[in-house]
């Protein structure tokens, strides 16, 4: 079971729902579940990075999720 937390910027697209728990093996399936449930979210999260249990990835599609994984969408960061 993984829980996705939606930031204030994203709850507009989830009808105010702040978190969602889904039973999926990998980030790829998680993204499918999220965008099926909230189609409007597809656009904004496409340009975001994904934090899985505190580690931020650019494209973690095939990353396996743990028992109680926590997922956040975070803005991508440019560095100097």
């Amino acid at each position: 079971m993984a829980t996705i937390y939606f930031s204030a910027a994203l709850t507009d697209f989830t009808g105010g729902i702040e978190s969602l728990t889904v039973d999926v093996p990998r980030v790829r399936e998680l993204m499918q579940a999220v965008t099926e449930r909230f189609p409007d979210l597809a656009d904004p999260i496409e340009i975001m990075a994904i934090a899985v249990d505190g580690e931020v990835y650019q494209e973690p599609d095939y990353l396996k999720l743990g028992e109680n994984s926590e997922i956040h969408f975070v803005p991508r960061i440019a560095g100097g």
Binding site: Y5, S7, A51, D53, G54, E55, V56, E70, H72, F73, V74, P75
Partner: peptide, 10 residues
């Protein structure tokens, strides 16, 4: 602790 942008710090 949770960072203000969401995830927990390592």
């Amino acid at each position: 602790d949770s960072a203000p942008y969401g995830p927990k710090y390592g």
